[in-house]
Design a binder for these strands. Structure first.
Lengths: 192, 192
DNA sequence: CGCCGAGTTGAACTGAATCAAGAAACGTGG
DNA sequence: CCACGTTTCTTGATTCAGTTCAACTCGGCG
C-alpha cells in the first residue's frame, strides 16, 4: 500500500529519492472520514493539505447562504483550504467529505520541512502547484468562452463519473450555473 | 541595476544563494521591445518566460476573432505563454507588448537547469507559480461572485494605474465583459 | 407509509451581450 | 500645426442566456 502510494506520486507528479520517501512515510498521517464530515470550516486557519487515497471531497464557499463548490478531489488528487494553506489567512472555504474517504494529511510544516530538506520534494511541490495553476486557468477560460451547456459537456469529458459521485447541485455551482439550469441542460425540451 | 533586480526578486519572491545569483546573471538575456510587438503568436511553441523590468505586456486569446485578454504584467512581474511554457503544447495565447518594454527572457531550459542545480531556485519557481495560482483563483471567485461593476472596482483597487496604461477594451475583455458594458459602468446614467 | 432532500419543470425577469451609429482621441504625414 | 484616417470609446435600442421564484415529482429511509 505504501509502495503503491509512492509509485502513484512518482508517476502522477514527480519521483522522490529513497531518503525522502522514507521520511515522508514516517511523518505522514493517514486518516479515515465518513461521508459528510467537514474537514475545514470557513474562518478557520487550516495548515493541512489532504491527499485522497479513497473517496472524494470538495472545497466550497458559503457566499451569503449560497453553497458554491470550488474544487473536487478524487483518488490520487489533493484538496486543501487553498487560501489558508498558502497565505496563512482565515479560510474562505469549507472542505467536505463527499464519500467515505481515506486521506493522507500533510501539514504545511511537514511540507515546508521536507521541501527545505529534499530538493526533489521541493520539486514535487512545484509540480503539484503547477498542475493546480493550470487547472484553474482552464476553468477560467471555460467560464469565459463556453456556454453553460458546453462547460457541462467539458466537465463530463474530463470526469465522466462525477455525475454518479457528486450531487448535481454541487456540479452546477462548480460550473457557475444554477441547479435549475443544469437540470434543463440535462433534459432538453424537444425543439418546436 | 543587476543588484537592484536581485533585490527585487529576493523581496518579492524568494532569496537566492550567491552562486545561483551569479549563474542567473550570466545566463539571462535582457531585451527591449517596442509597444505593439507580438512576442508570441497563437500556435507557436514558446519556451520563454518574460520578467518585465520596464513597461507592460499582456497575454490574450483570439477566440474566433474576439480578442480576450488573459493576463497583464507590469514592472517586476512575469508573463509567459503559460500553456505552452508549462505543458509544451502550441500556445493558445498571444503575448503583446503594451508599452515600450525592457524584459528579461528566461528559457524553460535555463529555468529547469537552474532549478535542478540550485535548490533555492527551485523554491523561487515554486513561489512564483504559487502566486500565479492564487491570482487565478482570485480571478475565478471574482467572476463567479461579483457583478461586472464590482469586478471593475476590485481591479481598480488592486491596480489603480491600469486605466492609464491599458486600453479599456483589454480591461473589459479581462473582466469578462464587453467594452460597451465597461463604458456604461464608467459613465453611469442618472437614476430616473 | 410519510417525510425530506434532491431534482424537475414552468413563467417571469434581468444583467449583460449584441447590433448599430456616432463622438472623441490619437498619430502621422504633408 | 493642421487635416485626415484610424482606433478607441460612448450611447441607444433590442435581444438573450441564464436567474429567480414557485410549484411539483421522485426516491430513499426512519
Amino acid at each position: 500500500m505504501k509502495e503503491e502510494l509512492l509509485k502513484i506520486i512518482s508517476q502522477t507528479y514527480a519521483p522522490l529519492s529513497t531518503a525522502c520517501q522514507q521520511e515522508l512515510l514516517e511523518q505522514m498521517k493517514v486518516s479515515s472520514y465518513e461521508k459528510g464530515t467537514i474537514l475545514v470550516r470557513e474562518g478557520q486557519y487550516s495548515d493541512k493539505s489532504f491527499f485522497i487515497l479513497q473517496g472524494c471531497a470538495r472545497a466550497f464557499y458559503l457566499n451569503d447562504g449560497r453553497d458554491i463548490s470550488d474544487w473536487f478531489a478524487f483518488e490520487n488528487e489533493f484538496v486543501s483550504a487553498i487560501v489558508s494553506f498558502f497565505t496563512n489567512q482565515p479560510s474562505p472555504h469549507y472542505i467536505e467529505v463527499l464519500e467515505d474517504a481515506v486521506v493522507i494529511e500533510l501539514t504545511r510544516t511537514l511540507i515546508d520541512d521536507l521541501a527545505g530538506k529534499y530538493h526533489d520534494f521541493e520539486h514535487l511541490v512545484r509540480v503539484v502547484v503547477t498542475k493546480t495553476m493550470l487547472a484553474q486557468r482552464e476553468r477560467i477560460s471555460s467560464i469565459l468562452f463556453h456556454t453553460a451547456e458546453e462547460r457541462y459537456q467539458l466537465l463530463l469529458a474530463i470526469r465522466p463519473d462525477i455525475v454518479n459521485r457528486v450531487p448535481l447541485m454541487h456540479i452546477a455551482s462548480y460550473l457557475g450555473i444554477t441547479l435549475e439550469t443544469l437540470s434543463r441542460i440535462r433534459h432538453p425540451k424537444k425543439r418546436i
